[in-house]
């Protein structure tokens, strides 16, 4: 009798010990882990190199990220190390994309883009099965392996390796519903923590010449200036993240740009006036991205709808065909 008590007591201690270990030592529930991943990528300073593979193509890139604080804005620099020189420089509200072939494009935001629907913690769990399946090592760092399996056909599946210490994304494999690998990203080296002064200097070096400036006007939902159109169908769980107006990169008109996200995948819907007046539709898979273009007619008005995002092509097409003008209201 005494012995059984002693054993159960010992078991209890053991259970408490294990659970406290799990709680204290960064094995949170999987949904929290995703939130932390997003959070860390904004709020931590880090520097590293990673490879990115899509299809038969393999590229090396490097990233420097500096977290924002009271005195400094968030800064980031992504450099493509292979092929034609390209880089992305971001400083707060401003983003430069420089390409050796196409020149420098500057995106200028009046203010930080307001997030219309802040993603709720539980949202990913509703549309994905999230499971921590093990501990692995990536780029010399301990990583938690998280399985993210979609519950419907409108999103891809992921295996994510998240840094155990910082929750930063160390490796990501995206698969389609056949289990085929679409893209792979993997860090080969990563340093988390404060950056050296030399590295910080790299972050403030902006392109001297700008070929094209795109001024983005954020539009929080304003009843006085409603959209001329609406999306008739969205995959469940995709919420409007933000909405803006910018000059179209392909025409003389302004284009409405809406971004939708389910917390993991995201796609953008662009709608602009169309001048070609030829009803047509095109869709394509470009690496991990699906792109659909479709022209609509409403009376004498033609609209060009473009959907781009890391969602299956079928979902993107369905979103594109559902876009309709808002004029006629019953």
């Amino acid at each position: 009798m005494k012995q059984t008590q002693w054993i159960s007591g010992k078991l209890l201690v053991l259970v408490i010990f294990i659970s406290s270990f799990l709680n204290a030592d960064t094995v949170p529930d999987s949904s929290n882990l995703l939130e932390k991943m997003v959070d860390s990528s904004k709020k931590l300073s880090f520097q590293g190199e990673f490879v990115y593979q899509q299809g038969a193509q393999l590229e090396t890139l490097s990233i420097i990220h500096q977290a924002g604080d009271n005195d400094h804005s968030e800064k980031e620099r992504i450099i493509y190390l292979d092929g034609a020189p390209r880089e992305v420089v971001r400083d707060g509200h401003e983003l430069f994309f420089s390409s050796y072939n196409e020149g420098v494009t500057r995106f200028q935001h009046g203010s930080l883009m307001p997030v219309i629907n802040k993603l709720q913690g539980g949202i990913s769990e509703k549309y994905y099965d999230l499971k921590i399946v093990g501990i692995d090592r990536v780029a010399g760092r301990e990583a938690l392996l998280l399985l993210v399996l979609p519950k419907d056909r409108f999103r891809y599946g992921y295996q994510l390796w998240l840094d155990r210490e910082s929750s930063l994304l160390l490796k990501s494999v995206m698969v389609d519903d056949q289990g085929k690998i679409i893209e792979r990203l993997q860090f080969t080296s990563l340093n988390v923590g404060s950056l050296s002064d030399e590295t910080k200097d790299l972050l403030i070096r902006k392109p001297p010449v700008v070929d094209e400036t795109i001024t983005v006007k954020s539009q929080p939902d304003r009843p006085s200036d409603p959209l001329q159109w609406e999306t008739g169908w969205l995959p469940d769980g995709f919420l409007l993240e933000n909405r803006s107006v910018r000059p179209s990169p392909v025409s003389q008109h302004n284009v409405d740009a809406l971004v939708f996200s389910d917390g993991i995948a995201s796609f953008s819907v662009f709608v602009e006036q169309d001048d070609t007046r030829v009803l047509s539709q095109a869709s394509e898979k470009i690496g991990a991205l699906s792109a659909v273009s479709k022209i609509y007619r409403e009376g004498n008005q033609y609209f060009h709808v473009t959907v781009v995002g890391d969602i299956p092509l079928g979902a993107a097409e369905r979103v594109a065909v559902s876009v309709r003008p808002l004029k006629i209201k019953p």
Partner: peptide
């Protein structure tokens, strides 16, 4: 058109909640 808008999308998700490394890495295609 797709090329131009893929860049716009990358920019949008980088400025929003997305993982900017993935958004911009995808442009390599």
């Amino acid at each position: 058109r797709f090329h131009a808008y893929a860049l716009q999308h990358a920019e949008l998700s980088a400025m929003g909640n997305g993982q900017s490394i993935l958004s911009f890495a995808r442009l390599t295609s």
